[in-house]
Design a protein around this nucleic acid. Structure first.
Lengths: 235, 235
DNA sequence: CGTGTTGTGTGCGCTAGCGCCCAGACCAGC
DNA sequence: GCTGGTCTGGGCGCTAGCGCACACAACACG
């Protein structure tokens, strides 16, 4: 079991719980190692587990028309996968794919629902988290409609850096194109532009954030807006 | 008080409640007449009331960058405004604007929260409704990204027709452009195309749906998908 | 060391939608 | 009947992103 697992605060939702609630919840969790591209939930499929990422992170993807798709959410150690269970629905509304491999806590849905019923603190916390997610979903819709690819890419990189807890991570342009709902070539152009401006360095899927401040300036306001909304609601 | 108000089933959420719960809830409601373009909730503003439209309908709009905006939800007699209260948050995540004037039930938030705590049936129902809304939010994001304006317009018209309970309603192209996040001229083109194909007839904001089947064929699959998801979850 | 696979960069013609501006049609009110 | 506001339509040049096809570099593995 990796060392990261032993820190209870490795997931911020868990960390935000009162000690008693947290300990009971974590007693029902098991540590798992998520691997890149693993599908944790199909759209419309029944969820068997919820996940609290610690070092890993998960993309929420809205498939459309069979072929295309669009990432509409990103879950790292600030959140959880399976939040719709607090609405009493154990069907996943979206496709959930591991975007960054690594450790996470996992809990089966029955145990989770049981704990949820017992702890009103847990309920309160997760309700607020869901509220934030909803706001971000709407924000993402508008962002995707209005903002230029380069800005959206910059935002995506920042969000990923936050969740990867590192200024280096691996993601191919092909994959990025899939997430952003554009052609691979479009990503090539946008990424080249960022690289020319010395904001990132890119080589065969290995991305390094060189100038975080510059990247924030190049990204759309949605990045900061999202962060602010999380901070406001989750404290 | 308009006659439509006397029918308890005029709002489908209310109608779906067991008689006892419904009667208690409606006792806390007052009938109001919503007027076009009225703002019922500012983004980030505190909500004072929740609304159950009967003949009226309400747009949920995600403003972005101050100027532009995008409609991400539409609430008619199948839903309610203020659903985020079931998450214990009385701040509106979106801008809510009356899109079609008419009667609705209104309830102040305190009473609503109180009733919510009393009726687990109400909770269950609204949780499912929120789940559907979330799914549609994600769907809308992808739809806006990938589908052509003409198809999106057709979808919008169908959704509005459903909520207006009439094949005629009033909406200017200017307003449509605002909702769809495009130029007015773009709407002119798309609407002309639909009119040329004898699917709608359009004159100075007065729209009439001429060929509903044709319009469904011209719209993207999102319309049917949304309807199906509501039907599945809400019975 | 060659060979297939994976990832990145380019070029080319195309389309949807943009921003801007103006024309005409219709309606309401004086 | 005139006038001014509202609504629709169209023209014009432009851009972001599309689809397709191809070249090339780096790596992985026999």
């Amino acid at each position: 079991m990796p060392d990261t697992h032993s820190a209870p605060a490795a997931n911020r939702l868990l960390a935000a719980l009162p000690r008693k609630d947290r300990e009971r919840l974590m007693a029902g969790c098991e540590p798992v190692e998520l691997v890149f591209a693993e599908v944790l939930a199909e759209q419309g499929g029944r969820m068997r587990h919820v996940y609290f990422p610690t070092e890993s992170f998960i993309s929420l993807v809205a498939p459309i028309d069979g072929r295309a798709s669009l990432e509409v959410g990103l879950i790292g150690n600030e959140g959880m996968l399976g939040i719709s269970l607090i609405l009493g629905v154990e069907v996943s509304p979206l496709l959930a794919v591991v975007q960054g491999g690594g450790p996470a806590w996992r809990m089966d849905t029955e145990t989770f629902c049981h704990e949820l019923a017992r702890s009103s603190e847990l309920q309160r916390l997760l309700q607020r988290y869901l509220y934030v997610e909803i706001g971000q979903l709407a924000q993402t819709a508008a962002c995707t409609r209005f903002h230029l690819l380069e800005a959206r890419l910059a935002r995506w990189l920042l969000m990923t850096q936050d969740r990867a807890h590192s200024d280096e991570f691996h993601v191919t342009q092909e994959f990025l194109a899939y997430m952003l709902g554009v052609r691979r070539v479009g990503v090539t152009k946008a990424a080249s532009s960022l690289q020319n401006n010395k904001l990132i360095s890119y080589c065969r899927g290995n991305i390094r954030i060189v100038d975080r401040h510059g990247l924030e300036a190049a990204s759309c306001g949605c990045y900061k807006a999202n962060k602010a909304s999380y901070a406001e609601m989750m404290g």
